[in-house]
Design a binder for these strands. Structure first.
Length: 424
DNA sequence: TCTGGGGTCCTAGGACCC
DNA sequence: TCTGGGGTCCTAGGACCC
């Protein structure tokens, strides 16, 4: 059996943990640059606020209903997520963290339903007491069915956060009540196509033949179809190593116009990619740098830059990645183009373990010197903090281009921002 | 005025080989 | 008029997830 633990309205719940006045009040969280709504409390959902709605389109509505609005505080959410996952790892030898707010638990040892219900309640209550985050647990023979179970666990309060699908009768009943679009693996495109073919519930889908599913939904559809029948076919512990690593941002306002501004932003994106590569002990053999103007502005000239760099010798070195990114970007830069770039980023790909790097006879980089410098920089950072030393081209205004007007404090990670309790 | 930021996998088609 | 029969590799684009 698999358990799926899913944090309820995770970002909104994180804000609530440290601000009790937000309880029973609708809460929404905005994306970077305060652009879109990316998380909502139940009260906000009830107001009809949709995921992904641009903030400016619902600003009036939010004010009318006294909705609390927050900028994304990923430092806080990341730390709260780590706490939840740490607690969960105590309940299973096999925890697979699926996203910032979800994890699959291997519950293989527990077959008896009464045991499962009790164990599930313990898990939910432990997370709630330990972190203040409400979670839902769905349990079923496959991961896709565990998702279905958690859908019902959230929908009906009578489950008290734990819903278990452990018999064929329960499975059929659940699938009959599950709209096809709610199934994990059926997305925005497939749903209308299936509905047109008369498939409205997960059960309608399961009742089709395999060849039919294969024809209409390709291989991924067949996998979902089998999972819904109780045949597990989503591989264990997927992708610990990332196959591509991307750092990108939108720029607030009209975007960036000058090469120097772009260079500063890209140098910081390149640095972030280098750090992510080092964290998973990888090197990349290819890098992409991209930038484009706003696709929403038909009244201004449009441009897109997209440059690939193939490396002779894979690397994760900050300086080298910055150099490659910037020289490729400068070649593609249109002097006097007058474009305002709204979004840019760096992607590292063709990733291999850093232990498997092959050198090249024609390498022009002094690797000995490079790694000595990188080691020295790392030691300075360890001793004096992550911002103690940086490349000049990175500038001093990290994240300055982000608009975050509704940011909450970093309650759990910054000593100057921890919560203060006043005694009278 | 204002529209996120990451990832994965699969498939079709083109380029190339003999 | 008529135009083989296998392969491989790469890439772009489409689908999905959070």
């Amino acid at each position: 059996m698999y358990g799926l633990v899913d944090c309820n309205n995770f970002f909104a719940s994180c804000e609530r943990v440290f601000n009790p006045t937000l309880r029973n009040r609708p809460v929404v969280i905005l994306s970077n640059n305060d652009g879109c709504i990316i998380a909502r409390s139940n009260e906000a959902k009830a107001l009809g606020i949709k995921m992904g709605t641009p903030f400016y389109q619902v600003k009036d509505l939010l004010e009318r209903h006294d909705v609390a609005v927050y900028s994304s505080n990923y430092v806080l959410y990341g730390d709260m997520s780590r706490r939840v996952m740490t607690l969960l790892s105590g309940f299973t030898p096999n925890l697979s963290v699926y996203s910032i707010d979800e994890a699959f638990l291997d519950l293989g040892g527990l077959q008896d339903t009464r045991d499962l219900v009790a164990y599930g309640q313990t898990i939910v209550q432990t997370i709630s007491r330990g972190t203040g985050i409400p979670v839902t647990l769905g349990v079923a023979p496959t991961k896709t069915l565990a998702k279905v179970a958690s859908y019902f666990g959230k929908k009906y309060t009578a489950y008290h956060g734990v819903c278990i699908i452990d018999t064929d009768e329960k499975r059929q009943r659940a699938l009959e009540l599950t709209p096809i679009g709610e199934v994990w693996g059926i997305g925005r495109r497939l749903r209308p196509r299936l509905e047109q073919l008369g498939i409205h519930t997960a059960w309608d889908f399961v009742m089709q033949g395999e060849a039919w599913v294969r024809r209409k939904c390709a291989l991924a559809g067949v996998r979902t179809w089998r999972e819904l029948q109780g045949v597990s076919c989503i591989p264990e512990d997927d992708l610990p190593q990332k196959k591509s690593i991307c750092t990108s941002r939108s720029f607030a306002g009209d975007g960036l116009e000058h090469l120097e501004q772009m260079e500063e932003a890209l140098a910081n994106f390149a640095t972030a990619c280098s750090e992510k590569l080092k964290r998973q002990h990888s090197c990349c053999a290819a890098i992409t740098v991209f930038a484009y103007t706003s696709r929403f502005r038909e009244d201004v000239p449009q441009d897109a830059i997209y440059e690939n760099v193939m490396l002779q010798v894979p690397t994760n070195d900050q300086q080298e990645i910055i150099n490659k990114v910037l020289s490729a970007f400068r070649c593609a830069w249109k002097k006097d183009g007058g474009y305002r770039y709204k979004k840019a980023g760096v992607v590292a790909w063709n990733i291999i373990p850093d232990s498997a790097v092959q050198t090249s006879l024609f390498d022009t980089v002094d690797r000995v010197r490079q790694s000595a410098l990188a080691r020295a920089v790392e030691q300075i950072k360890m001793k004096n903090g992550p911002d103690a030393v940086k490349m000049a081209v990175q500038g001093t205004s990290r994240l300055a281009f982000l608009k975050r007007e509704h940011l909450s404090p970093a309650y759990t990670t910054n000593l100057n921002e921890v919560i203060v309790v006043k005694c009278h």
